[in-house]
């Protein structure tokens, strides 16, 4: 019993250390960051955060990220719910193959898709728009969402649908009034994973945007390479990008356990 606790403490210390160092760095002045090895800031400052919040450049990055992430979640859920319903309720020619093909897209290496994405979205005039990034992220999120939702829907007996139709419910009415509440947890889990991937992804978001839709993650990468190494501001921006994720995890921690328990990630 003792030994396992020691292992856990060591592991959690390892987990927290890099994040702590980032926080620590974000509250220091650049002089202190580069010239002293302090385990906590001696000249505590919030100047780095002020830099971020007062710069339209950083603000726009955050807003762009939020825009395409939400757009992605909406597209994924709207397309995945009916598809998952079809897979869970009906057998049709080629359903297994189609389901498997959808899942193979989850395996696609992102780097393999940047050339065609760039060519395609430039040709149809979507380059550097939020919708382009949202659609590109659907490549990974839609199969995953269909998989998760199909699992939830298969757990609901078909008799419920049949009884409702016998009772004279129209399909949309049945779906909204009876079926939707039953799968709301599944929708939440699917939306969570869509949010997660779209929020953390860099390569596609970077390839498909230049200025108008540039997300925060790209802003971060670029500012790192741009000669003037403002480590304090960089650390502060990094800390800020961790907040939405941490909030989401906190609020849906119970649902998260459920999603993992179903083994459908």
């Amino acid at each position: 019993m003792k030994k396992r606790n020691v292992a856990l403490w060591v592991y959690f210390a390892f987990l927290i250390m890099p994040i702590y160092w980032m926080l620590n760095t974000s509250f220091k002045t650049n002089n202190e960051i580069l010239n002293y090895m302090h385990w906590f800031p001696h000249n505590f400052t919030v100047k780095n955060y002020v830099t971020i919040f007062t710069s339209p450049f950083w603000r726009r990055g955050f807003l762009n990220s939020l825009a395409f992430v939400s757009l992605n979640v909406v597209i994924v859920i709207v397309a995945a719910v009916p598809a998952a319903y079809a897979f869970s309720r009906w057998h049709f020619r080629g359903d297994k193959h189609l389901f498997f093909w959808l899942l193979t897209n989850r395996m696609a290496p992102t780097a393999a898709f940047i050339v065609p994405f760039f060519a395609l979205y430039s040709n149809i005039g979507l380059f550097d728009t939020h919708i382009a990034v949202a659609l590109a992220h659907a490549l990974f999120n839609l199969p995953l969402a269909i998989w998760i939702l199909e699992g939830f829907m298969s757990g609901i007996p078909k008799e419920i649908d049949e009884t409702a139709f016998v009772d004279g419910y129209s399909f949309p009415h049945f779906f909204w009034k009876i079926f939707r509440p039953l799968i709301s947890q599944g929708i939440a889990v699917a939306a969570f994973f869509a949010f997660l991937f779209s929020w953390v992804e860099l390569l596609l978001a970077r390839t498909l945007t230049s200025t108008a839709a540039k997300p925060i993650t790209v802003t971060l990468s670029r500012s790192l390479g741009a000669g003037g190494w403002d480590w304090g501001a960089l650390a502060a921006a990094g800390v800020l990008t961790m907040i939405p994720g941490a909030l989401v995890v906190y609020f849906i921690r119970n649902l998260m356990a459920k999603g993992f328990a179903m083994g459908r990630v």
């Binding site: 953390v200 993650t217 971060l220 990094g238 990008t241 995890v249 921690r253 998260m256 356990a257």
Partner: peptide
């Protein structure tokens, strides 16, 4: 669980 979830939600380049 919350602590374990945090690294998973940090943008990859961050």
């Amino acid at each position: 669980l919350v602590l374990l979830g945090i690294p998973l939600l940090i943008p990859w380049n961050v």
